Simulated scan of single mutants.
Amino acid sequence: MKAKRKINYRWIIRTFIMTFMLAVIFSVVSEALMRNVNVFSAFLMLMIIIFIGIFFDAIGIAVAAANEKPFHSMASAQIKSAKYSIMLIKNASKVSNFCNDVIGDIAGIISGTTIGIIIGAISQYNIPTKFYPYLSVGISGLVAAMTVGGKAIGKEIAISRAKEVVDFTGKIIYVLKLVFSIGTYKKMLQGRRDRNV
């Protein structure tokens, strides 16, 4: 008889809070950035948001599909980014939840907000109001098609090249950690110098 798997309530609560905070932050920032932009800039922002959703969805799928063994060999060969790839695979369920659900849903919410801003921006071109519903439906349909189609392509790449996707993600995490660690070290060093003056 299989032992019952415990429900990780801490992770659920943490995900809830994290999603709420990220959704609020990204919504406020994106709305602030796009309030005074033209239609072209708003469309460009929308494409970036859609791409972010597709990119993270592919990472979530790749982490769940990847095999851990090749990265242990890479870690043995002193490839520093490999340990981050291993960490991603070991926490596949959490990483997939964050990438596919948290980031994916936030990208979808912001896309919807952006569509509303684009429709508002189009109003400056004196288009008759009777066309607004058609514009809204047309743009929403286009965004949905691009998102679903993009994620379908991303899933194919993520499953067929899971190792490469996870390796690439591990390298990004390694570089980001290295950059932020250097930045933190420089601040600490500067603080010590200031105290010694």
Rank of each mutant, 00 (worst) to 15 (best):
K4S: 14
I7L: 08
R10I: 15
R10S: 13
W11N: 15
T15Y: 09
T19G: 06
M21E: 12
A23W: 07
A23C: 08
I25D: 06
F26H: 11
S27A: 09
A32I: 15
R35K: 15
N36W: 05
V39S: 04
V39E: 09
F40T: 13
A42V: 05
A42C: 03
F43R: 02
F43T: 03
M47R: 13
V63A: 01
V63I: 07
V63T: 04
A64N: 15
A66M: 04
P70E: 05
I79P: 06
S81F: 12
S81N: 07
Y84W: 11
Y84G: 08
M87H: 13
K90N: 11
K90T: 07
S93M: 10
V95I: 00
S96N: 08
N100P: 06
V102P: 01
V102A: 01
I103K: 05
I103M: 10
G104C: 01
G104R: 00
G104H: 01
D105T: 00
D105L: 04
I106R: 02
G108Q: 02
I109F: 10
I110F: 00
T113E: 11
T113F: 13
I118L: 06
I119D: 03
A121H: 06
I122V: 09
S123T: 07
S123W: 09
Q124P: 05
I127N: 00
T129L: 12
K130H: 15
P133N: 03
L135C: 03
S136F: 14
G138P: 01
A144H: 02
A145T: 04
M146F: 11
V148M: 08
A152L: 07
A152Q: 09
K155P: 02
E156K: 13
I159G: 09
K163I: 12
V166Y: 06
D167P: 10
F168T: 15
G170R: 07
Y174S: 04
I182Y: 06
T184Y: 11
K187D: 00
Q190K: 12
G191W: 13
R192M: 09
R192I: 11
